[in-house]
């Protein structure tokens, strides 16, 4: 009998591929950390942008990104999961419906920049929101929506048909089957999709630049109606400057963004584990 850990050529190639992936990520983080040395302190985290590199901070951008992530989650989660429930449980399996469904799913491949253009027309000008945090949140929610939808649909499809049949056979209505069996069982998968989508939107600079993120704001946004600013656009603004010191600032903001994504993933994992535990 073969040993469980068999070291064949496939396994060797696999471990080389894994090492390369890991090394790339580690190098990236190492470069950022080296460049950002001496920058990361409380003054940097809480401070405001400045013409003088030594005094500059990311306070408003950090607050903006937290706001944006919160808004994106609050909009994309109910809409995306709701649409997934509709497509999987209610929508008739007609050709039109399947076409709509695949069109929405294909939005996941549309470049974020294009969502920025749409957001500019729809929210900034159409709804007259201006270049605010709310307009940014709505734009990023559009960007997150296809991912949330597709992963939620997949998670809903994974719920065994036997469980649904059993629930119906006990006299449950469709909504009760969805609410009490399908959604709880699909919840861990939905959280995975939401985490992925939020990671994508939290790091997106392009759509925010298109809808007019301010590059110089000296106060942190306190409400969704305040002017839009975010970490990725902050990184972009600093990396475009040639004076010494600003490269380090851009790297520092990049490190903070990475740390934020790490926190997001850890929170997602913890939530998923809790939900999976509740559904077992």
């Amino acid at each position: 009998m073969k040993r469980f850990r068999h070291h064949g050529p496939v396994s060797a190639a696999g471990s080389v591929a894994a090492s390369v992936t890991l090394a790339t990520a580690m190098t990236l983080i190492a470069i950022l950390l080296v460049q950002a040395r001496g920058v990361l302190d409380f003054g940097f985290l809480l401070g405001t942008p400045s013409r003088f590199a030594a005094q500059a901070g990311i306070g408003p951008a950090l607050a903006g990104t937290l706001w944006l992530t919160l808004l994106t989650a609050a909009i994309a989660c109910p809409v995306g999961v709701g649409a997934a429930v509709y497509f999987e449980e209610y929508a008739p399996r007609t050709r039109t419906m399947l076409a709509i469904e695949s069109a929405v799913a294909n939005l996941a491949g549309v470049p974020p920049l294009v969502f920025g253009v749409a957001g500019l027309a729809l929210f900034v000008r159409g709804l007259g929101l201006g270049s605010t945090v709310l307009a940014g949140g709505l734009t990023l929610a559009m960007l997150a929506l296809p991912t949330v939808l597709v992963t939620s649909q997949e998670a809903i499809r994974q719920v065994p048909t036997g469980v649904r049949a059993a629930a119906y056979a006990l006299g449950a209505t469709r909504w009760e089957v969805i609410r009490r069996q399908v959604l709880p069982a699909a919840a861990p998968g939905i959280v995975t999709g939401l985490t992925l989508a939020l990671a994508r939107t939290a790091g997106a600079a392009a759509p925010l630049l298109v809808i007019g993120a301010a590059s110089f704001i000296t106060y942190a946004p306190g409400t969704p109606g305040d002017p839009l600013t975010a970490l990725p656009t902050r990184v972009f603004a600093w990396s475009a400057r040639s004076q010494p010191g600003f490269t380090a600032l851009a790297a520092g903001a990049g490190v903070v963004l990475l740390a934020l994504l790490l926190v997001l993933h850890l929170a997602g994992m913890a939530l998923r584990r809790r939900l999976a535990g509740a559904a077992r």
Binding site: P160, G162, V163, A165, A166, A167, Y168, A169, L170, G171, A172, T173, E176, R180, Q181, P184, A185, A278, A279, R280
Partner: peptide, 28 residues
Amino acid sequence: RRRIGMVFQEAALFPGSVFDNVAFGPRA
């Protein structure tokens, strides 16, 4: 289906405890 219940060949249990399984129908 509340008047005429059904049990299938595959015992598709709901996630959770024995109580969760029994309570689902009455709650619904």
